[in-house]
Write a protein that binds this DNA or RNA. Sequence first.
DNA 1: CCCCGGACCATACGATCGTATGGTTGGCTT
DNA 2: AAGCCAACCATACGATCGTATGGTCCGGGG
Lengths: 189, 189
Amino acid sequence: MPGPSEELLDVVVGLLVEHGFEGISIRRVAASAGVSIGAVQHHFPTKDALLAAAMARVDDQVGAQLLRSAQAASSPAGALRAVAAGLVPLEPAERGAGVVWLVQVARAAVHEPTATAYRASWQRVEEALARLLGAARPDLGPGAVLDRAAALLALLDGLATARVAEPGRMPPSRARRLLDHHLDALLAP
Amino acid sequence: MPGPSEELLDVVVGLLVEHGFEGISIRRVAASAGVSIGAVQHHFPTKDALLAAAMARVDDQVGAQLLRSAQAASSPAGALRAVAAGLVPLEPAERGAGVVWLVQVARAAVHEPTATAYRASWQRVEEALARLLGAARPDLGPGAVLDRAAALLALLDGLATARVAEPGRMPPSRARRLLDHHLDALLAP
DNA sequence: CCCCGGACCATACGATCGTATGGTTGGCTT
DNA sequence: AAGCCAACCATACGATCGTATGGTCCGGGG
């Protein structure tokens, strides 16, 4: 059961998905959560702290979800496929997570504190992908594994971007097909 | 020679690169351009019109640049390579265009007018890539051409995102290597 | 029983925002 | 010379912003 702070963060995430960073204000968060301005201030001293906590929360949730799906797989190749699929908002219900990722990475381009957090998170993602790919393709050298993991991550980011911003051009079926095609070629001996 | 409106738009783009959409206000644009608030209002009636015009301007500039580099190539494969390289901010000097693209696509996720303009633009980009790829690989069926063009565009978007938000993890040399590797495999018979 | 600290609220302050209004140039046309 | 129009400016209005301040409520430990 989430505490009151977590409920506030979920409200922030909801507003972030709907209106982006520009649409977020302490007053709106308070109103949307049904509390007063002071309540928000009580849990998070400044707006920056509130936004940072909200982004850290979704980061943790996504990371935990990826870890779970990877551990549920029976082979490194299966785990790689699961993690890759988890990084692209294929279903419309996953669009929220994709929007949060997109507005966060755009903020990282112009806001240094956001950038440091994002870089650390995505560095870990690339390393995880490389680890799984190295286990699934023991014939590849370590340099090739790193580069192909980075290329895979770039494709995943691009698919996520298209899914979020252009769902018409990139419907779920197409995203899935492009992802599977790339993974098939990547995992072929 | 750019008129006063274009100078204002260039100022907007500069602020966009430095601070994103959140850092843009009529007053800041006016101050940064060395004119009054009323001057900005005279050329663009509202803030939305100003932002839309600024994004349309960079869109036109990028499109013209891509068209030029494609026409300068001597083969469809060369044109494809040129267009692909032009869509990724490889050099640090091109980072500005990448930042504008990233903040624009993030805004498209939460702002419908931005989304419609972005979708139209990127739809044209995918079609151009597919046309060049179809000419370079006549052995491919039209469906395969479309899908591989979309996968290439996703990779380019992901590389651009990483170049802008994580220049440490994705230095120019690595982005170029990943791009060339993908294009080599794509253009191989 | 007291009281104390965390959770929450009401309100206020100064700053900044987008936009509206009306006036002032300065060059060009007729 | 007269007038017109685009370009530009100074200022003002109401709204919203982030944050600070001081109070109220209430459940658990002394």
